[in-house]
Amino acid sequence: MKLRFEVDGDEFVLAGEASSKLKKVLMQLGISSQLIRKIAIAMYEAEINMVIHANGGFIDAEITPDKVFVSLSDTGPGIPDIELAMKEGYSTASDKVRELGFGAGMGLPNMKRYTDDMKVTSEVGKGTTVELTVFIS
C-alpha cells in the first residue's frame, strides 16, 4: 500500500497531521501498537522538522507485509553537516520554535532510535530527504 501526504510548511497548526493519518491506517491494518508507536515517533519528528526548517514537503509511505517505509522530502535549506545534526542536543531551531517545546536537538536522534534503518541525504540549498524503515516481524 502506498500513501502520499503533502506537508504545508506555513501551517504549523497542521504539523503532525500526516503522522496521525498514517497511524490510523496502520491501526486499521492491525499492525502492533508497539510498532505503530515507533513509526509514529520517528515520522512525527521528521514531519515537524519539515515544517520548522524546510517550509514543508512531501511524505511517501509504503506499507508491505515485512516493513513500513516512510520517505520525507523537502526543498528546504539542506543540512550542511549531517553528522553534527545527528548529535543529541544539537539544534538550529529559532528561539520562537524552542519556546514551543521544539528544538531540543532530539529529532534526528529519535528517528534513529525508533527505526530499524534511517537514511538522510541532503544538499545545501536543494533540500533534504529522510528515509525511515521499520520492519514488521
Partner: peptide, 8 residues
C-alpha cells in the same frame, strides 16, 4: 515541556 523528550 520539550516535545521531543515527551515523544521519546
Amino acid at each position: 515541556d520539550m516535545l521531543s523528550w515527551v515523544m521519546a
